[in-house]
Design a binder for these strands. Structure first.
Length: 561
RNA sequence: GCGCCCGUAGCUCAGCUGGAUAGAGCACCAGCCUCCGACGCUGGGGGUCGGGGGUUCGAAUCCCUCCGGGCGCGCCA
C-alpha cells in the first residue's frame, strides 16, 4: 500500500521543484511509515521536516505547500498536518478493501515481492561437521537459515540452500580414532583411550554399527561397515556416513532441507585450494616467514596477518574457507548469505580479506554474514550445560521429540538472531497461553473451524459477494484486522531486506491477536448474507496471511488443533 | 589489552534506515462460556530505555566515554 503513496509524494515534490518552492537538487531522504497511533492516520511522513532546511522554510509551511501540491487520489480520504510538520495520510476504506481482494486473489503468493528478483543466491547454514549429533545451536542456525532462504525466495531470488562440511580434517581424524577405540572395546577413561577423543555414547553406536557391517545411505552414497577395527580409513568413511545420515534425518524432522551438500574434500580434489593459493600469490598479498606462507590480511583491515599454509605444508582452515567462497562466486552466485555461530565471527574478516586479495572483482560485502548468538537451555528451572565431551547434552532431536517441531522452530526464530536467548524447555512444551506458536496456529484453526461450521449448517460462502460487501465492515475491530493484514507485505519486505526473520514472528502474533479480538467482537455466521460473506472474506484473508507467514518460518498452519 | 554482539516493566523479549504520550507476552489483580472451539476475550497496576556527555527541530534508536554480561583474539576448526 506504500507504493502509491510514495508516488503521490514524489509528484508533489516535483510540483514544488517546478514552482521553485524547493531547490532542484534538494536531497529527498525521508520516511513514509505506518502511523503508530490511529489518530495519526494510516501512514505518516517526515518529508517536510527533512526538507525544511534545504528549502529554507519552516516544516509546517512546507507541509502545507506539499499537501496543496498533492494530486487527487481515490485512495486518500484525508491528509493532515500535525505536530512539528508531520503529514498524516488517512486512507479511504476502499484502499483496504482492495488489499483484502489482493490477499484472497494472490493466496499463497500474498506478500511476495520483487526485491531480490532474479538474483542467483546461495544461502549456507548449519554446516556442522560430522563429528556428532546436532545441538540446539545448530537448530537455531537451521531455523534462521531456512527462514532467510524462504524470505529471499518470496522476494524473487533464485535460492540454493547449501550445507558445507569438513570431511577430511583433524577433527575427522579424531572421530575415526574415537570410533576405532570404541570398536576395540575401549571406553572414555581407559588407559589407552585417545587423548582428544569424542567421549559421547553415540560413538559407541557408530562403532557397533561398523562392526555389524551395517549399510548407511546418505546424500546419494552408500557406505557399508567393513567390520575390521584396524582399518582406520574404512572406519573414517563409515563414521562420517553414519553421522551425516543422522544429522540429515534430524534436519529433515526439523523441516530444514538443502539443495547442495558441499564437501571440503572436493575443494582439494577439484584443485580449488591450489588455485586459490596460486591466485593469492599472483596478486602479491602473500609472503613467506618461518617456513609458512602468510596472507597480508592487514591490507584489507585485519589487525594482523594470517598464516595460510603452515610450515608442515598443510593449510590452515581459513584457506579452504576462502576457496569455498570463491567457488560459490564461480558457480554464478552473485549473492551469498553465510549463516554462522557468532563464535566464528573472528573468521569473517579473514575470509573477506582473502576474497578481496584474489582480485577477481568479488564485491566487498561478499558474502553477507548472518550470525546467531548462543542459546542457553533451561529445564526444570536449571541451565542444561552443553558439552560434547561431557554427558549432559540436549540434542536437536531431543527438542523435536520433547517440544515438537513447530514450537522449537518458532522459539528459535522469534528472537533477533544476534541476541543471546534462553530456551526454556518447560515453557516451550506448555500448550498454554505462555506459548505464542499455539496462539497463532489457533487463530488459523479457528477460521478453518468457522468454515466447517458454515458447511455443517448447509451454508455457502460467496467470495465475490463478500469482497463486494466489505464496506459493511466498518467496526473498530474489523478495521484493525484489515490494517494488520495489509501490513504483511511491508513486514516481509523489511524482514527480507534486513535478513531478520524474527520480524515475521512478532508480526504474526499481532495479526493473530487482531483476529482473536475480532472473533470475539463479532459473529461470523449471521443471517444477513452480505454481512456474513463479508466477514468470512475478511477472516479468510487473515487465515491466508497467517498461513503465508507461518510458512516463512517453517511452521505448520493446522486446520484444527 | 584489542575486536564483535548485547544491556528496554518482576521474567522472556519487540521497537523497522532517529520521529509525535516507550510496546507485547508471561507473572499479578478483577471480569467474560444458554453465543461460530475459553489453546480465547476485556480491563487494571508496573519502566530513571545500564550511567554520563554529545550531534538536532526531535534520540531507546546515531557518536564518544564509563559500568556490567557474552563471544572471539593459534602455523585449531
Amino acid at each position: 500500500m506504500k507504493a502509491p503513496l510514495i508516488s503521490l509524494i514524489e509528484q508533489a515534490l516535483a510540483n514544488l521543484r517546478n514552482a521553485g518552492t524547493l531547490p532542484g537538487d534538494a536531497a529527498t531522504a525521508y520516511v513514509l511509515e505506518r502511523a503508530k497511533n490511529r489518530e495519526h492516520g494510516d501512514f505518516a511522513t517526515n518529508v517536510a521536516l527533512a526538507l525544511a532546511k534545504p528549502a529554507r522554510s519552516n516544516p509546517r509551511a512546507l507541509a502545507q505547500a506539499l499537501v496543496a501540491a498533492l494530486p487527487q487520489n481515490t485512495l486518500l480520504q484525508k491528509v493532515d498536518i500535525a505536530g512539528p510538520g508531520f503529514i498524516n495520510f488517512f486512507l479511504s476504506p476502499v484502499a483496504y478493501h482492495e488489499e483484502m481482494r489482493h490477499a484472497l486473489d494472490q493466496g499463497p503468493r500474498y506478500g511476495s515481492n520483487r526485491l531480490a528478483a532474479g538474483r542467483k543466491t546461495v544461502v549456507e547454514y548449519v554446516s556442522a561437521n560430522p563429528t556428532g549429533p546436532l545441538h540446539i545451536g545448530h537448530g537455531r542456525a537451521g531455523a534462521v537459515g531456512d527462514s532467510i532462504a524462504r524470505l529471499l525466495t518470496v522476494s524473487g531470488a533464485d535460492v540454493a540452500r547449501e550445507f558445507y562440511y569438513n570431511d577430511a580434517g583433524v577433527q575427522i581424524e579424531n572421530l575415526a580414532r574415537s570410533t576405532q577405540a570404541r570398536a576395540r572395546g575401549c571406553k572414555p577413561g581407559d588407559a589407552d583411550w585417545p587423548a582428544d577423543a569424542y567421549n559421547g555414547d553415540y560413538i559407541g553406536d557408530v562403532a557397533q554399527a561398523y562392526l555389524r557391517g551395517d549399510s548407511v545411505a546418505f546424500e546419494n552414497h552408500v557406505v557399508a561397515g567393513a567390520k575390521n577395527p584396524d582399518d582406520l580409513d574404512a572406519i573414517r568413511q563409515f563414521a562420517v556416513a553414519y553421522l551425516r545420515r543422522e544429522q540429515n534425518a534430524d534436519l529433515a524432522a526439523f523441516g530444514v532441507k538443502f539443495d547442495n551438500y558441499y564437501l571440503e574434500s572436493s575443494l582439494y580434489q577439484d584443485g580449488k585450494v591450489e588455485e586459490t593459493v596460486r591466485e593469492l600469490i599472483k596478486h602479491g598479498h602473500t609472503y613467506e616467514d618461518g617456513g609458512a606462507l602468510w596472507l597480508r590480511t592487514t591490507d584489507f583491515g585485519d589487525d594482523k596477518d594470517r598464516v595460510m599454509r603452515k610450515s608442515d605444508g598443510t593449510f590452515t582452515y581459513f584457506l579452504p574457507d576462502v576457496a569455498y567462497h570463491l567457488a560459490k562466486w564461480q558457480r554464478g552466485y552473485t549473492r551469498a548469505i553465510t549463516e554462522l555461530g557468532a563464535d566464528h565471527h573472528g573468521s569473517l574478516m579473514r575470509v573477506k580479506a582473502g576474497l578481496q586479495a584474489l582480485g577477481t572483482g568479488i564485491p566487498k560485502d561478499y558474502p553477507e554474514y548472518v550470525l546467531h548468538q548462543m542459546v542457553t537451555v533451561m529445564r526444570g528451572g536449571e541451565e542444561v550445560k552443553l558439552s560434547k565431551r561431557a554427558g549432559s547434552y540436549v540434542t536437536l532431536r531431543d527438542l523435536i521429540d520433547e517440544v515438537g517441531r513447530d514450537a522449537t522452530r518458532y522459539f528459535l526464530i522469534a528472537r533477533k538472531s544476534d541476541s543471546q536467548m534462553v530456551f526454556d524447555i518447560d515453557l516451550a512444551r506448555s500448550q498454554s497461553n505462555d506459548n505464542p506458536v499455539y496462539y497463532i496456529q489457533y487463530a488459523h484453526a479457528r477460521v478453518c473451524s468457522v468454515l466447517r461450521q458454515l458447511d455443517e449448517r448447509g451454508l455457502r460462502w460467496d467470495r465475490a459477494n463478500g469482497l463486494a460487501k466489505l464496506a459493511q465492515l466498518d467496526g473498530e475491530h474489523e478495521t484493525a484486522l484489515m490494517v494488520e493484514i495489509s501490513r504483511y507485505p511491508e513486514v516481509v519486505e523489511a524482514a527480507a531486506t534486513s535478513l531478520e526473520p524474527h520480524l515475521i514472528a512478532s508480526y504474526l502474533r499481532e495479526l493473530a491477536q487482531a483476529l482473536h479480538t475480532y472473533y470475539h467482537a463479532h459473529q461470523f455466521l449471521v443471517d444477513d448474507v452480505d454481512v456474513r460473506d463479508a466477514r468470512i472474506a475478511l477472516a479468510v484473508a487473515a487465515r491466508q496471511t497467517i498461513a503465508n507467514g507461518l510458512d516463512l518460518l517453517g511452521v505448520s498452519a493446522p486446520e484444527q488443533m
